[in-house]
Amino acid sequence: MDNPTYVGLTRQSGLMREMQVVANNIANMATTGYRREGVIFAEHVAATGPDAASLSMGNAVGRSISPVQGAISATGGQFDIAIEGEGFFLVETPEGEALTRAGNFIRNEVGELVTVNGHRLLDAGGAPVFVPATAQSVALSGDGTLSADGQPLTRIGTWGAVDPTELSRRSGTLFLAPSGVEPIDGARFVHGALEASNVNPVAEIARMIEVQRAYELGQSFLDAEDGRVRDFLRTVGARA
């Protein structure tokens, strides 16, 4: 095959990958605390020879995690917490400390707050959050102070990755930060509310149509290239 076909192919496989990302975003449009994912294409320049022009190919090399605030909807749940602003909750997972925006916590059988997947929530000091089973009313103030029956229990903090570019996703709307986490300030907590997924369905569908049409365009390009090669072979073959 010839270079034009290869260039077309990199574009096609990148678009296929982007389609998967769009499909995943739409599938997670109702996932609490989900962060929209984007694909970044970069030019991959290949030198074709010492004097020839170089060739540029499109390649999906990276991804972006959308930091846009999701809609906060009131649920009235006793342990539903939404973060307004930047930062994440810190939770303890078998893979180490992880970050999440999903604030739909549940009190487990010993009274600790855990995520729906059973990972323990950690407070501003990095300790598990304990709410006694006999507490009648639980309140959380905007700065994260958790109190039961008027007695302060602990303070929940917001955390961020030391190196935000390294955030990698894990199942359960979790993010892992390989080089560690640090407390960050400036966010507010909303008690009895949850942050919805920050996927904008209209934008995703628009992106999906764009990807689909670009893919079809790429296919007709490959088609034309195929026709060109065939014409060439037919012409050359006839002369020979």
Binding site: R17, A27, Y34, G62, R63, S64, R169
Partner: peptide, 30 residues
Amino acid sequence: FSDLHYQQVTRAGTIGAADGTVVPAGVQIG
């Protein structure tokens, strides 16, 4: 709901060149 597993197409932190350049974000597909 919760998101499902992620497929690591290009792992973040992979060394992308001989001089030790590290891929900052990688490609993960949910």
